[in-house]
C-alpha cells in the first residue's frame, strides 16, 4: 500500500509536469490522463475505492474525452507546436514558477510543522457509507449539484453555438 502510494504519487507529479510544459496539445492531454489515473491509484491505495473508480470513469473517461474531441474539432495545424515553443520562453515561465514554488514551500513547511500525527491505515471506506452520507444528511447538496449541472448544460449549449447559427452578428472583429 505504501509503495503504491509513493510510486503513483511520483508518476502523478511527473505526468503533471509533462502537461504544463508540453507543446503538443494531444500529447499534453495524454499526460493528463496518465496523471489522473495515477491519482486514482493513490485513491485506491488510501482506501477510497469509490472515489478511485469515479476518478477513472468521470475524469479520465468523460472529461478527457470531451477535451480530446474539442482538440479534434479545432484541428490545429503544424504551426501550433512551434507557436507554443515561441510562447514558452524562459522569461515567460521563470517568474510564475518561482511564485508557485514559494507558495508550495510555505504550504509544505506549514504542513510539516502541523504534526497532526494522523496515519492513514488504508481501511476501506466503501460506496455504501458514501451513499448513506449523500442521500441522508447531505441530500440538499446532491440537489445543488443537480442544479449546477443543469446550469452548466444550458450555458454550454448557449455559448457553444457556432457563429454562423447566429444571424447578423458583427462581433468578433478578426481581420
Amino acid at each position: 500500500m505504501e509503495l503504491a502510494f509513493y510510486l503513483s504519487g511520483l508518476v502523478a507529479v511527473l505526468a503533471t509536469l509533462g502537461v504544463v510544459t508540453g507543446t503538443n496539445a494531444v500529447h499534453a492531454l495524454l499526460y493528463l490522463i496518465v496523471s489522473l489515473i495515477a491519482v486514482a491509484i493513490v485513491f485506491f491505495a488510501l482506501g477510497a475505492p469509490f472515489a478511485g473508480a469515479l476518478e477513472i470513469i468521470v475524469y479520465a473517461g468523460a472529461i478527457m474525452v470531451l477535451f480530446v474531441f474539442v482538440v479534434m474539432i479545432l484541428n490545429l495545424g503544424q504551426g501550433a507546436a512551434e507557436q507554443e515553443r515561441i510562447w514558452l520562453k524562459a522569461q515567460t515561465w521563470v517568474g510564475p514558477s518561482i511564485l508557485a514554488a514559494v507558495l508550495l514551500g510555505v504550504l509544505v513547511i506549514t504542513l510539516w510543522r502541523g504534526n497532526t500525527g494522523l496515519v492513514i491505515e488504508g481501511e476501506t471506506l466503501t460506496a455504501k457509507a458514501v451513499g448513506a452520507t449523500l442521500f441522508g444528511p447531505w441530500i440538499i447538496v446532491v440537489e445543488l449539484a443537480a442544479m449546477l449541472l443543469l446550469a452548466a448544460l444550458v450555458t454550454a449549449s448557449h455559448v457553444g453555438r457556432l457563429p454562423s447559427a447566429t444571424s447578423g452578428e458583427h462581433s468578433g472583429g478578426d481581420q
Partner: peptide
C-alpha cells in the same frame, strides 16, 4: 504495514 502519514498525502 504501518500506514501513510496524512502530511504526505496533503503534500502530494
Amino acid at each position: 504495514m504501518n500506514g501513510i502519514p496524512m502530511e504526505h498525502g496533503l503534500i502530494l
